[in-house]
């Protein structure tokens, strides 16, 4: 089965996020005074082909996050996994 994993990587709460702080100060200066905190992160979309099950895909993505996509010293990650939408189009 073909799966699509959507991974979000952000800095841990305990780690200061200078980019997020800069974005927040920009928003505040634009008048959005209700913005208490901004965290900047990464959004990755992985297309997986030929997985035996969503569980297998999930295990793989978790491993990939731990080994490469996130740095556990400073970052945390979460992901969603779902059946990939059909690629569509006509075969000719």
């Amino acid at each position: 089965m073909n799966l699509r994993a959507t991974v979000t990587v952000t800095l841990k709460r305990s780690v200061l996020d200078p980019q997020g702080a800069a974005v927040r100060s920009g928003l505040l200066s634009m008048g959005y005074d209700k913005v208490r905190d901004v965290r900047v992160g990464k959004h990755l979309v992985l297309e997986l082909d030929g997985c035996a099950s969503p569980e297998e895909g999930s295990r793989m993505v978790d491993e990939m996050c731990r080994r490469l996509l996130a740095n556990p010293v400073i970052e945390e990650y979460r992901f969603e996994i779902a059946e990939a939408p059909s690629r569509g189009g006509h075969e000719c």
Binding site: V15, L16, P18, Q19, A22, N71, V73, I74
Partner: peptide
């Protein structure tokens, strides 16, 4: 060296950005 674990810790973006 930090990424491969030979040394501990990690690098963040400079605080000045």
């Amino acid at each position: 060296l930090l990424e491969c674990g030979l040394l501990p810790g990690a690098m963040l973006r400079n605080d000045s950005l």
